[in-house]
Design a protein around this nucleic acid. Structure first.
Lengths: 211, 211
DNA sequence: GTCTATAAGGGGATAGAC
DNA sequence: GTCTATCCCCTTATAGAC
């Protein structure tokens, strides 16, 4: 048993970190960093401190393990926000504020999450459709109506895309931004926190803009 | 000689499409679609209608060919816009309008360009720093000063990132947007054209927003 | 310059011992 | 359940004929 496992057992009682869980955590980390095609099962095995045979014993193949990780990441990204967007009792302004805060927190905590999902969907390693059915209904139902109520001349799609871009883009472009603007990790994180305040203000301004 | 080559020769006179050029065009296409690690030299050779040996004869290795393609793509994305941003005689509003139009045209013409560059930089297959030196100077010099003149309480970085997000994000998220909003390619392109008008209006609204 | 054939090695997956 | 050893395909790159 490793030191980490021992410490964990002492803290959590008799509960043991299952090998299956160890592999999934390691896979999460490696896939997120390298993407499907650059990640090697050997990397994952090493990260999990086991061997490749064991990986195949539990998950049958690299692809199946990837599918599992991908599903969890999509849930992580859309799980919290979907019900908020569906809720008719939450105002549009409040939704914008909640989405901004929620996403910036999630993306700050998990570097690489956004570009990972976007890229894997782009490269067709993963068919995201089944997981997106809910999100699709959500935006169509409540949110779009709310936009139309405030601005019937405005395309809700364009507005939602703009909001998503404001929130997500800096995380996707993070390495480039850090290079071009010469930012430290700490400064970057501080700037992202600032955007929690800025984005709702700016969205309000957009909603009031004359077309 | 292929039909395409023959037709080209007839049009352009005696000038011949060099094998080197054929390979570079094919590599461009394959790398853009699959990324460095998923692209195989065999795919490129097939696309160029030659064999792998010839690829190595001209470019020594997959990596060297990739570096070349990457350099060209970065130029394509930043080449036109950099001098505009540097120019002191162009107003901020005009710069926003030009950047919007220019980027939307480039990204519409070359599907996958944005996510390709962002992802390869993220995955560290390419050190973009040398190419970014100019762009970095550009934004720092003229553009940032212009923002400060209009709104000295506003962080130019945040504004530029927001503009970039508005323009680039929908192209990066294209497959997901098409799925979730159930858009055809034609509808997507139409929506992107609409953004040429919307984004400058919205940026104006943001610049006038009260903090 | 261009081809065929092949070397050299990487990577996913499994057999079989324990 | 977990390990070692190994299989076998795929991919990059090169040798050598033409």
């Amino acid at each position: 048993m490793s030191h980490a496992q021992l410490a964990y057992r002492l803290l959590m009682g008799t509960k043991k970190i299952s090998t299956e869980e160890k592999i999934k955590v390691a896979a999460s980390k490696v896939f997120l960093k390298k993407g499907f095609s650059s990640a090697r099962t050997r990397d994952i095995a090493e990260e999990a401190d086991i061997n490749i045979a064991l990986l195949n014993y539990y998950f049958r193949s690299k692809q199946k393990l990837f599918d599992l990780v991908m599903y969890e990441k999509v849930q992580k990204l859309f799980g919290k926000i979907s019900p908020i967007m569906r809720d008719n009792t939450t105002s549009l302004g409040k939704k914008i504020q909640l989405a901004t805060t929620e996403y910036i927190d999630t993306l700050s905590e998990t570097p690489g999450l956004a570009i990972f999902i976007l890229n894997e969907v782009y490269k067709n390693n993963y068919d995201i459709v089944p997981n997106m059915k809910l999100a699709r209904k959500a935006t169509k139902s409540s949110l779009f109506k709310q936009v139309k109520e405030i601005r019937k001349d405005m395309d809700p799609f364009q507005l939602v895309v703009t909001l998503a871009g404001m929130i997500i883009f800096p995380f996707v472009a993070k390495p480039m931004l850090k290079l071009t603007a010469n930012l430290s990790e700490k400064t970057f994180q501080k700037l992202m926190q600032e955007r929690k305040v800025l984005i709702p203000i700016w969205m309000k301004a957009i909603l009031k803009s004359k077309s």
